[in-house]
Deep mutational scan, measured.
Amino acid sequence: PQVPQCKALYAYDAQDTDELSFNANDIIDIIKEDPSGWWTGRLRGKQGLFPNNYVTKI
């Protein structure tokens, strides 16, 4: 099955070790969508939390 993905609308710099940094237009694999607004994703071999208001699902 296809892994859900999202595209970064803005760059995000991780504020903690469990967060994921990314650049605008990066494509992130979505591991888990949480109602809190912090999703778990994977990018370039690293997994971490990121704010879903920085991305749009594709």
Score class of each variant (00 low, 15 high):
residue 1 P to W: 08
residue 9 L to H: 05
residue 48 G to V: 02
residue 40 T to G: 03
residue 7 K to G: 00
residue 36 S to G: 13
residue 32 K to H: 15
residue 35 P to F: 06
residue 52 N to D: 09
residue 1 P to K: 15
residue 15 Q to A: 12
residue 15 Q to W: 05
residue 33 E to L: 06
residue 41 G to S: 00
residue 8 A to E: 03
residue 36 S to W: 07
residue 9 L to N: 08
residue 50 F to R: 00
residue 30 I to S: 00
residue 46 K to D: 06
residue 55 V to G: 00
residue 44 R to E: 06
residue 46 K to Y: 05
residue 20 L to R: 01
residue 37 G to I: 04
residue 2 Q to N: 15
residue 7 K to E: 07
residue 10 Y to K: 13
residue 44 R to H: 08
residue 48 G to S: 01
residue 5 Q to F: 10
residue 44 R to N: 15
residue 41 G to A: 02
residue 34 D to G: 11
residue 15 Q to G: 10
residue 6 C to G: 14
residue 45 G to N: 15
residue 24 A to T: 14
residue 23 N to S: 14
residue 32 K to Y: 11
residue 44 R to L: 10
residue 57 K to L: 04
residue 33 E to H: 02
residue 56 T to S: 13
residue 34 D to K: 04
residue 40 T to Q: 12
residue 24 A to W: 04
residue 33 E to M: 14
residue 49 L to D: 06
residue 7 K to N: 03
residue 25 N to G: 13
residue 8 A to L: 01
residue 11 A to F: 05
residue 38 W to S: 09
residue 32 K to I: 15
residue 34 D to R: 09
residue 28 I to T: 05
residue 43 L to R: 05
residue 19 E to K: 10
residue 31 I to S: 03
residue 2 Q to P: 13
residue 34 D to H: 07
residue 22 F to D: 02
residue 19 E to C: 11
residue 57 K to G: 05
residue 42 R to T: 11
residue 7 K to P: 00
residue 35 P to D: 14
residue 37 G to P: 04
residue 27 I to V: 12
residue 52 N to V: 12
residue 11 A to K: 14
residue 23 N to L: 12
residue 44 R to C: 10
residue 45 G to L: 05
residue 46 K to A: 12
residue 52 N to E: 15
residue 31 I to H: 05
residue 42 R to Q: 13
residue 29 D to Q: 08
residue 2 Q to Y: 05
residue 5 Q to H: 08
residue 40 T to M: 15
residue 16 D to N: 13
residue 39 W to E: 00
residue 31 I to D: 05
residue 31 I to M: 13
residue 11 A to D: 15
residue 5 Q to N: 13
residue 40 T to L: 13
residue 18 D to Y: 12
residue 10 Y to W: 11
residue 58 I to S: 10
residue 30 I to N: 01
residue 30 I to G: 02
residue 23 N to H: 13
residue 26 D to H: 00
residue 22 F to V: 04
residue 34 D to S: 11
residue 51 P to T: 00
residue 6 C to L: 01
residue 20 L to H: 00
residue 44 R to G: 10
residue 45 G to T: 05
residue 47 Q to C: 08
residue 52 N to Y: 08
residue 41 G to W: 00
residue 1 P to T: 15
residue 54 Y to C: 12
residue 53 N to Q: 12
residue 36 S to V: 08
residue 22 F to E: 01
residue 43 L to A: 11
residue 58 I to D: 12
residue 27 I to L: 10
residue 54 Y to Q: 05
residue 21 S to Q: 06
residue 45 G to D: 12
residue 24 A to V: 13
residue 40 T to D: 05
residue 23 N to I: 12
residue 47 Q to T: 14
residue 20 L to Q: 00
residue 47 Q to M: 09
residue 14 A to F: 02
residue 31 I to Y: 07
residue 16 D to L: 07
residue 46 K to F: 05
residue 1 P to N: 15
residue 13 D to Q: 14
residue 42 R to Y: 05
residue 55 V to I: 07
residue 3 V to F: 07
residue 56 T to I: 07
residue 47 Q to F: 09
residue 52 N to W: 13
residue 42 R to F: 09
residue 17 T to P: 07
residue 48 G to F: 03
residue 31 I to E: 07
residue 48 G to C: 04
residue 32 K to Q: 10
residue 40 T to A: 09
residue 57 K to M: 06
